[in-house]
Design a protein around this nucleic acid. Structure first.
Length: 670
DNA sequence: GCTAAAAATGTTTTT
DNA sequence: CATTTTTAGC
């Protein structure tokens, strides 16, 4: 997502009116509906576009880019903020298809990736060095655990929150703009007695990050705000450079991102926000659908356009999703319409158990393929990553190729993190977390010894000279080979990321073989890491991108690097499926306690979010929609029997769905 | 005191 | 299945 950028002088003519030539030969009035066209033609000033599911939102954004460029606006001065890498890529690709090479010059990415780029360049204005490393959730957890040990908070009689919970508290506090005390007393009342200790840890965490030049995801946003508010010169330059902002999925922005939008918009306020309050599904990370409703107040005089015609789904599917949302207790009431009459009602499948659910899905998918629907046009959606485990077994048994989105990520795998830690040390030798991770890979080194060795390293003139560190002979041996490798790597004047990874992999593979039985698979992952690295010139850029926009391949799925463009079924969490569409959609585990999920059952606001999540899932379908649930399942996690179909199915009602009854057919079992 | 191996446990969703 | 806690071993 990173691209080289050259600042060019801007003249007044670039925002000229509609008289500019139509060089792309686009007939806007014919290719867009009136509402879409209105949104496309309004270029200056704030505009809010409320776009229902499947209403041609991306199309509108892409055409608007074309219109702007036709008007003489430099593609470079357009900044497209989207929520996921997938949608950013899709948008830039489609812009390119429409207007050619100039489309490539449009800037696009997530708020976090934009913050990263801007801070690398301008961060120095607020005292931030440009070689900072970015922490993912796991890294933050490692640091918190270390701090907990340092503060002697390890042994507690009453339950102390886990590191991931503490991080979640901090994130909630920052992203929602609520004090940490209130977050704990409202959302984690059972930990209230530890409030003091948690605050001590978090203060230490903040100090630690500053000291070692580390930024977590939230810091990227916070520091960008700090830069824009405290460095007027940088802000002026940036709002001049990104003169035209477009934000997709605005309903998923949080207060910090809204503030960034306002700051970047500058005085000209050329901002378009696109979104749908009914599809807000990121409240857990501070997003607030009311943000989009507040947009007109934030940008007085803003124009409003509504896109309500759905081009995606058939009428029966849309009827059921409209019905689902008519039970919503908050948000705009609205009804999408479609001209795609005909088509089947969504199918409802009560399965005996998980096995039967998996069997049905697999079998039906094969039938669809017979009917001419390729695997790649089919998706199975579920609430949580682990809901697909059973189905994955069945798919493997039947040799149905699939890829899984969401759930465990490539870079969360230990072997990937190990190799990346070596690279991070090279970029940022103050990075204690990575050092300790690397040192603990050595025979005989645990957390204690690693910390000791690190304190020696941090005072040394050359951090990679490990030969003079005092340690036992066994440890010394390991330190020796680590040190010589690091010296070799850091001595390379023109390092090439992929060969760096290869050298580290050579060093690391004995360790890998020692620890993991499945090392051939993991070595293949490392090969792939090197391949990815080959696409970057700079190491820093590679590491930042990997943290912000990780590859979507799951570790255990078959890797996509084997060249052949095989047709594959997609398995995805609903969150990862947002903004996309498929010919046929299966939603599995539509069961009280799974979807809506257990933790959501207590809280009406969360339940509403689950409803929107179901809405997002169902509106992905063009032609076929299957809602499946096992009739009764013992849930070990909650210790209860789940035997109620999802309340959302009841809300839709029987007359809009078609019940399929499953016959037992033993011939399919083996 | 520290490390390493073995048993237990428990899972939303993502940048 | 991967992390976290417990226990054995050095």
């Amino acid at each position: 997502m990173t691209r080289e950028y050259a600042l060019r002088p801007v003249s007044g003519a670039q925002v000229a009116g509609a008289t500019a030539s139509r060089r792309f030969g686009i007939d806007y009035e014919r290719e867009l509906n009136p509402a879409q066209n209105e949104a496309v033609q309004i270029i200056n000033g704030p505009i809010l576009c409320l776009a229902g599911a499947g209403s041609g939102k991306t199309r509108t954004l892409v055409y608007r880019v074309a219109r702007m460029v036709e008007n003489g606006i430099l593609p470079e001065s357009i900044l497209l903020l989207t929520f996921t890498r997938k949608s950013a890529m899709e948008m830039l690709e489609r812009a390119q298809q429409l207007i050619g090479a100039e489309g490539r010059r449009v800037n696009g990415g997530t708020y976090h990736s934009a913050a990263n780029l801007i801070l690398r360049r301008h961060g120095i204005a607020i005292g931030l060095p440009s070689n900072f490393s970015i922490l993912d959730e796991g890294d933050s957890g490692d640091i918190l655990q270390m701090i907990r040990a340092d503060l002697n908070l390890e042994k507690k009689e009453t339950r102390f929150p886990q590191k991931s919970t503490i991080k979640a508290m901090l994130s909630a506090s920052i992203n929602r703009g609520i004090s940490i005390d209130r977050i704990i007393s409202d959302d984690y009342p059972h930990f209230i007695e530890h409030t003091g200790d948690i605050c001590r840890m978090l203060a230490e965490y903040a100090a630690y990050k500053t000291r070692t030049h580390l930024l977590d995801y939230d810091d990227l946003l916070l520091d960008l705000i700090r830069l824009l508010e405290e460095a007027p010169y940088a802000r002026a330059e940036l709002s001049h450079r990104y003169r035209f902002l477009m934000v997709d999925e605005y309903q998923d922005t949080n207060p910090l991102q809204a503030r960034i939008t306002r700051l970047l918009a500058g005085d000209e306020r050329n901002v378009m926000a696109v979104g749908d309050d009914a599809q807000s599904i990121y409240a857990f990370r501070g997003a607030d659908f009311r943000n989009i409703l507040r947009f007109p107040e934030e940008f007085p005089g803003c124009r409003m356009v509504r896109l309500e015609e759905n081009y995606r789904s058939t009428a029966p599917i849309l009827d059921s999703t409209n019905r689902l949302m008519s039970h919503a207790t908050s948000g705009f009431q609205k009804k999408l319409f479609t001209r795609r009459t005909g088509g089947e009602k969504p199918a409802l499948l009560a399965c005996a158990d998980e096995e039967q659910q998996s069997n049905f899905v697999a079998q039906r998918i094969l039938e669809l393929r017979e009917e001419g629907v390729p695997l790649s046009k089919v998706v199975v959606l579920f609430r949580s990553g682990f809901h697909s485990y059973g189905l994955e077994l069945e798919l493997r048994r039947r040799d149905i190729p699939y890829q899984k989105w969401g759930g465990f990520k490539f870079l969360e795998a230990t072997h990937i993190k190990d190799v990346l830690a070596h690279l991070r040390i090279l970029v940022n030798p103050c990075d204690q977390v990575s050092w300790i991770r690397v040192l603990m890979l050595l025979e005989g080194v645990g957390p204690r010894t690693a910390a000791k060795i690190f304190s020696d390293i941090s005072t040394a003139t050359n951090p990679f000279d490990l030969s003079r560190i005092t340690a036992g002979s066994k440890i010394k041996e390991g330190l020796g080979s680590l040190g010589s490798m690091l010296c070799r790597l850091s001595g390379d004047p023109r390092p090439d990321t992929s060969s760096l990874i290869d050298i580290i992999t050579d060093y690391y593979s004995p360790i890998l073989k020692n620890r993991h039985d499945d090392f051939p698979k993991r070595l293949k992952d490392l090969d792939q890491l090197a391949t990815i690295g080959g696409k970057y010139q700079g190491l820093e850029e590679f590491l930042a991108d990997l943290t912000l926009e990780p590859p979507t391949n799951s570790v255990n799925g078959r890797l996509a690097d084997d060249g052949e463009k095989e047709e594959r079924l997609v398995l995805s969490t609903i969150h990862s499926a947002k903004g996309l569409e498929w010919h046929s959609v299966f939603v599995i585990w539509a069961l009280e306690g799974r979807f809506p999920s257990f933790p959501a059952l207590q809280n009406p606001e969360r339940l509403e979010e689950e409803r929107r999540l179901m809405y997002v899932a169902m509106t992905r379908a063009r032609e076929n929609l299957y809602l499946c649930y096992p009739v009764s399942i013992w849930d070990a996690a909650s210790g209860s029997l789940l035997a109620e179909p999802s309340r959302f199915i009841r809300d839709i009602g029987d007359e809009l769905l078609e019940r399929w009854s499953l016959q037992f057919d033993r011939s399919n079992q083996f």
